[in-house]
Design a protein around this nucleic acid. Structure first.
Lengths: 224, 224
DNA sequence: AGATTTCTTGACCATCAAGTCAAATTTGTT
DNA sequence: AACAAATTTGACTTGATGGTCAAGAAATCT
């Protein structure tokens, strides 16, 4: 027997797990392409290779299916923060590692970023609590770390939250608005070289922009 | 008589112009809130205070109405580029002016940015040609200006296109994802002070990040 | 004023998508 | 094997939505 929460969850027989995974994967693709309103259960079902009634059997409603997809995404979002938590880490490594990770995600899993972007664009009707609690707490924690670096003279004073907003924006734009970037660069899809240049550009922009002193180098940027 | 293109356009009697403007304004709001798929003609009509059939009289289809809204947006997008064209302008002024303008737009007309963001997120089905031609040409022109500054030693070498992507991303995130920023900062909507801090943060990030030398200051950042 | 064009509007239609259902089938249990 | 639970599936219902239409009201023209 199940633990009371019948559908969704990770528990259940092998058949359930397999079907749920199949449906979630298809849903992620379709929601990323069409958004919540634009997606249809029929299309998700077709992509999953299952009859539509099957989706309703496992997830009840379109809304519940969408929430299930979102749940997966939110955990991924928070996970990327580990870069800040390495104790006694130098800001250069922390920023570079975080940016590299986020950018790799934009390249490898753009769908995840796009679903989240669509959700925010529509006013975050489903993830408002997440933003106001988990994400907010995480930003507070990271801000404290950054302020510590500033206090120790490792970088110039900045508004930590806004710096994070900037990093999120610069990295996710390569997933969310890839068509635009591809069109401007003259080729679609984006190539590995594009992401390499982008990563380099963002890391340099942030490192120099924050006046991060690299103790291993001699040409340390000024703190002015 | 009209010039052959019956509906839409700016020409026509006073009644037509007034109705069209009313509908376009309502459509802009609803499309920004709900996206193309999520918006309904009935809702736009209600917001405009007109019967639904009226919208179809002037615009024919939902698609045509949407395209009309987009057309307006695209011109605004291109207009902001004037900052780069001032001849013999110092990069600091150009960047700061452009960022200030874009940020002000995110604050004052977030709907415009959101509709464009939604369009890109769905793969730009309606504006692909615009991206590949007008926008691409404009980026080329601006890139040339930036490369000129680099050549004259006014800033360090950067990938101009990616720098622009970064600036677009950082400024538009305050319109497109305002809920997220508001939730993290702990208040909604965003206040003028938030935008002031954001503008300052982005300008400093870009100026220092690009190693822009300000000839009027003594504490010029290093070019390293 | 009379004719003509433009505009307004409620009612109507066709389509499509979410969600339901019950019967059939498979799987798991004793 | 026999029974119960889980799963599959096509057919169906219901509601919303984009779009149409024709008749009337208003504005414009001669």
């Amino acid at each position: 027997m199940d633990d009371g929460l019948l559908p969704i969850g990770e528990r259940g027989g092998a058949i359930r797990q397999a079907s749920v995974a199949l449906i979630l994967a298809a849903a992620e693709t379709v929601f990323a392409e069409c958004g919540f309103a634009g997606a249809s259960m029929a299309r998700i079902a077709a992509l999953a290779g299952l009859p539509k009634a099957n989706l309703h059997y496992y997830f009840g409603t379109k809304e519940r299916l969408y929430r299930a997809v979102l749940e997966h995404i939110l955990t991924l979002w928070l996970d990327a923060a580990r870069h800040w938590l390495v104790p006694a880490q130098h800001p250069r490594q922390a920023f570079a590692g975080y940016i590299r990770d986020k950018m790799a995600y934009s390249r490898d899993r753009p769908q995840v970023s796009r679903i989240f972007a669509g959700e925010l664009l529509r006013g975050a009707p489903h993830v408002r609590p997440f933003l106001a609690h988990q994400l907010r707490d995480q930003v507070s924690a990271i801000s404290a770390v950054i302020d510590g670096w500033v206090a120790r003279g490792l970088m110039r004073p900045v508004a930590p939250a806004h710096l994070l907003f900037a990093i999120w924006a610069m990295t996710q734009t390569y997933a969310d608005f890839a068509v635009q970037i591809g069109a401007v660069l003259g080729h679609t899809p984006l190539e590995d070289a594009d992401f390499a240049t982008a990563t380099e550009t963002v890391i340099e922009l942030v490192s120099r922009g924050c006046g991060i002193i690299d103790s291993k180098r001699e040409d340390a940027p000024c703190l002015c």
